[in-house]
Design a protein around this nucleic acid. Structure first.
Length: 501
RNA sequence: GGUCUCAUGGCCGAGUGGCUAGGCAGAGCUCUGCAAAAGCUCCUACAGCGGUUCGAAUCCGCUUGAGACCUCCA
């Protein structure tokens, strides 16, 4: 019996607004798509929260036995800022500012994005397609939408006819918009537009000859519409209809709404069975966003080099911080909260190191109460994760487990009171939840082995000093290491451990 | 203006009708040469006012406050 059968997953589906039992179309295969970054500058912490959320979804579904194909795109084609055509192409604008070729910009920030992902232990997706690599597919999709009568061409641009679409379908089903209200709200802005209605959106946009990024198409030179790439690439790699599509809440409208319309318009089928939307990271109660200027970069975070930051925070502490809240809640950033998270993370991390070194001697029988307790925690890890990926609850269980781990270490709990198999299950679950599912790993420091060797030499000296009752010297060794950020800890048996701040 | 969401103890945050998470901070105890780490104990909250119910943080209404989307954003 696969874990996913034992602990069935439920997901809050943005489309229905309800928490639903997750039943993949073709179990054990799962198609998962999430909107990746537009690589025209560096991703900020808010972006990272979303990527981390879906990283955990990917990790957990995989862990419980699903064969997940996870597609996360890179947006590297220019997107016009607004439909009126007076906006700027963000990638091209960056290129001009930095005096680089557009693809240089793309390359630079894609690399930067990957670096950040690696540092935050966000796994690479199964497929990471780029918009520029799928121009053909996008043009093909425009053709289909045109031939199905849901789009029209004007001066080399192709627009999706929302009103026409809405006659037979429901534009706004995902975001709860009412098309009449949308039309009303935008009527006054509707000048000498090429579009029939203000809510129509471009699926192919003609550009002027001096535009650097442009591609040939049946309608002339231009660029694909803003929403088209996800439709085209999601369909290509996951099929006409796939299981989960995720992204930040701010993409719900219009991006995801348009995506649905495009897919239905081209293929006659709603593309996604379960929509998931992550909530925003806020700073002092306000959404962190590039336009508000209250965002900071991951790099600034672990360097502590931003005015909002009181100090530097480690990547794993920040990851832990994010996982302490549910993905669908806003999470407010503050130095206090991050400092608290730092300590909590360290506690779990220490327990992880500890349990890896604990091995059951093999001779023990289950004490009914203790064994039931340990098994309960194992089950709760899975139940809470299967309950809409409730990492906050899972972490609460892991804290409880970490207390028991320390009990085994200190001898408060005896190995004799638990069978080897029960202990192994407990141990394996803790390690798997931490490392495989939540992606919380030990912080790596440079020259780890060398450091370890050097500190062990000093530990040897301190042991000698203590044996000789030369406490002045033993304290000096400990205090001076402490000043450097290395904390020595004496065990009952005379052994010493250390942690690095 | 339209649509919608949220308001939890000193702080951060789970929670969707009864079993009153968890972390951080604080107090105390145990262990320890002293520390650190760890274990145990204590601190019991749900914006306000009504209502439904045997019973509400959880459902409904109103009030107040905050925020999001409607324009690029994860």
């Amino acid at each position: 019996m696969a874990l996913y059968e034992k602990y069935p997953v439920s997901i809050s589906n943005s489309l229905s607004g309800n928490k639903e039992l997750f039943v993949p179309a073709k179990a054990p295969f799962v198609g998962l798509y999430s909107c990746g970054p537009t690589v025209y500058n560096e991703v900020h912490l808010g972006n990272l929260r979303t990527f981390t959320s879906f990283d955990v979804v990917f990790r957990y579904l995989t862990h419980i036995g699903y064969k997940v194909r996870y597609v996360r795109n890179i947006t590297d084609a220019g997107h016009l800022t607004n439909d009126a055509g007076v906006g700027v192409d963000r990638i091209e604008e960056s290129a001009k500012l930095e005096q680089l070729e557009p693809m240089e910009i793309v390359q630079k920030y894609t690399t930067s994005f990957h670096d950040v992902c690696r540092i935050f232990n966000v796994l690479p997706p199964s497929i990471e397609p780029t918009a520029t690599g799928h121009i053909v597919e996008q043009i093909d999709m425009v053709k289909k939408i045109l031939s199905n009568g849901y789009a029209y061409e004007v001066n080399g641009s192709v627009y999706f006819d929302v009103r026409k679409y809405n006659e037979t379908h429901h534009y706004g089903e995902l975001s709860g918009r009412n098309i009449d209200e949308l039309l009303e709200g935008t009527r006054e802005l509707d000048r000498q537009d090429e579009k029939r209605n203000a809510i129509d959106f471009a699926i192919w946009k003609a550009v002027s000859p001096n535009h650097i990024q442009r591609w040939n198409s049946p309608w002339g030179e231009g660029i694909p519409g803003w929403h088209l790439e996800c439709s085209a690439m999601g369909t290509k790699y996951l099929g006409d209809q796939f299981d989960i599509h995720g992204g930040g809440m701010d993409l719900k409208f219009p991006h995801h709404e348009c995506e649905i319309a495009q897919n239905v318009g081209a293929l006659g089928k709603s593309p996604v069975r379960y929509w998931m939307h992550t909530n925003m990271l806020t700073v002092n109660g306000e959404k962190m966003s590039k336009s508000k200027g209250n965002s900071f970069l991951p790099r600034e975070l672990f360097a502590g080099s931003h005015p909002l930051l009181a100090k530097a925070y480690s990547p794993m502490a920040v990851r832990f911080f994010m996982l302490q809240s549910h993905y669908s809640s806003t999470l407010d950033f503050s130095n206090e909260a991050l400092s608290a998270a730092e300590k909590g993370f360290k506690k779990l991390s220490n327990a992880l190191t500890t349990i890896k070194s604990l091995n059951h001697p093999g001779n023990g029988n289950d004490d009914a109460t203790l064994a039931a307790d340990l098994k309960r925690m194992v089950g709760e890890c899975y139940q809470t994760m299967s309950d809409d990926f409730n990492t906050a609850k899972t972490l609460a269980v892991l804290f409880e487990m970490s207390s028991r781990i320390n009990d085994f270490k200190s001898g408060n709990l005896k190995f004799a009171a638990v069978s080897a198999s029960t202990f192994e299950e407990f141990k394996n679950t803790y390690i798997a939840m931490m490392e495989d599912v939540l992606g919380i790993k030990d912080e790596e420091s440079h020259n780890q082995e060398l450091m370890d060797g050097v500190i062990n030499v000093l530990i040897g000296l301190r042991k000698k000093a203590r044996t000789d009752k030369n406490f002045a010297l033993s304290d000096k060794i400990r205090d001076e290491l402490k000043a450097l950020g290395v904390q020595l800890m004496d065990g009952k048996d005379g052994e010493m451990n250390y942690t690095i701040e």
